[in-house]
């Protein structure tokens, strides 16, 4: 086998669900050499105070991000589409269950 290089492992991003039913939120990163170890390391680092119910780990290099210099062209066009937001609509008082 070829010589193994000494490293601190790969970088993984950690997403935690703090309560069943809630969305997973990015909590931070962790180092590990493989996925089984990554999820254990994430558990030991980020849920020391019982913060977790569910957890994902994702190799950091698998995450696709936009460049911040692009952010205006990327996000601003949807700023004027207020009709996507429920508060846009004027509805009669007393309407229920909508």
């Amino acid at each position: 086998m070829s010589e193994v290089k000494d490293t601190q492992g790969q970088l993984w991003e950690v997403f935690i669900q703090t309560k069943k039913g809630l969305p997973f939120k990015h909590f931070g990163s962790v180092h590990a050499y493989d996925k089984e170890m990554a999820i254990q390391n994430a558990r030991d680092l980020y849920t020391r105070r019982g913060e977790g119910r569910g957890m994902w780990v994702v190799p950091a290099d698998a995450i696709v991000a936009i460049d911040s210099s692009d952010d205006e062209s990327f996000f601003d066009p949807s700023n004027d589409k207020v009709y996507r937001h429920p508060t846009f609509y004027e509805l009669p008082d007393g309407l229920k269950n909508m």
């Binding site: 086998m1 193994v4 290089k5 000494d6 490293t7 601190q8 492992g9 050499y33 493989d34 170890m37």
Partner: peptide, 11 residues
């Protein structure tokens, strides 16, 4: 660390 890296490579 090398053992962990080697194992990951094999997997």
């Amino acid at each position: 660390r090398k053992a962990a890296a080697a194992y990951a490579q094999k997997q």
